[in-house]
Design a protein around this nucleic acid. Structure first.
Lengths: 114, 114
DNA sequence: ATTATACTTATCCATACGGCTAACTATAAT
DNA sequence: ATTATAGTTAGCCGTATGGATAAGTATAAT
């Protein structure tokens, strides 16, 4: 059964790793070649390349080879897609008190809310 | 080596699964018992409970047992923490053109930007 | 007192993940 | 022409993940 069929699956999975988040955090500042991105990590290149592939397949970054150097660039679209999901949840959460029934039900369990 | 030491690791990993995202999406509307949350999924209860545990250990939800029923509630703090990471990246990405050097460097590769 | 409900605990299983090394390819650099 | 650089390809390995079943526990319902 095809896991990661939904885009959000791949995106969140890609971001669930500290190395990969750091790579994104580096690429939002501007494009960079793989070698440069890999430098800070005490990791074999093939291992690092897997992270790059995961990010690329998630659509969070793109890459192109020129000569023997592969340069990676950040792609803002997919990050925005993930952010949207958060906004959705926050919107629903914020609208909890829209009707009185919800309010009363909720207040039975909690007293400290923003 | 302790993976998932950083909160964001656990949070994003928790959200990388469609079932777990759906549970969150359900709980933002209000608290619900495990049985009710599990109903839509054709999944054995122990399997489903694992998802609940993952969400709870990530801090995205909380749960308490009353009688034989365990009721789950959404916790907005951790979701906000994750959202912050996105905002950070977006901020850095938006400030790419702050100095001319970056602008010129970047324009070499791209021509269509928002 | 018995039975049904709502989990819980304990295993088990196949696959995915994150790391590695070794060997290969292709492009600079000398 | 040789050598160094920057990836790439192909395996291997231990652990984690997402699912399952089977049996147990504690609480409500009858």
């Amino acid at each position: 059964m095809d896991k990661y069929n939904e885009p959000l699956d791949t995106i969140f999975h890609a971001l669930a790793d500290p190395t990969r988040r750091a790579v994104v955090q580096c690429l939002v500042k501007g494009p960079a070649p793989v070698k440069e991105l890999a430098a800070p990590y005490n990791m074999a290149l093939p291992s690092f390349m897997k992270h790059i592939s995961v990010l690329e397949q998630a659509g969070l970054i793109a890459s192109q080879k020129q000569g023997r150097v592969r340069t990676c660039t950040f792609n803002p679209d997919k990050l925005a897609a993930a952010e949207q999901w958060f906004e959705q949840q926050r919107a629903i959460w914020a609208s909890r008190f829209d009707n009185l029934d919800n309010l009363l039900t909720t207040l039975q369990g909690e007293t400290d809310e923003t």
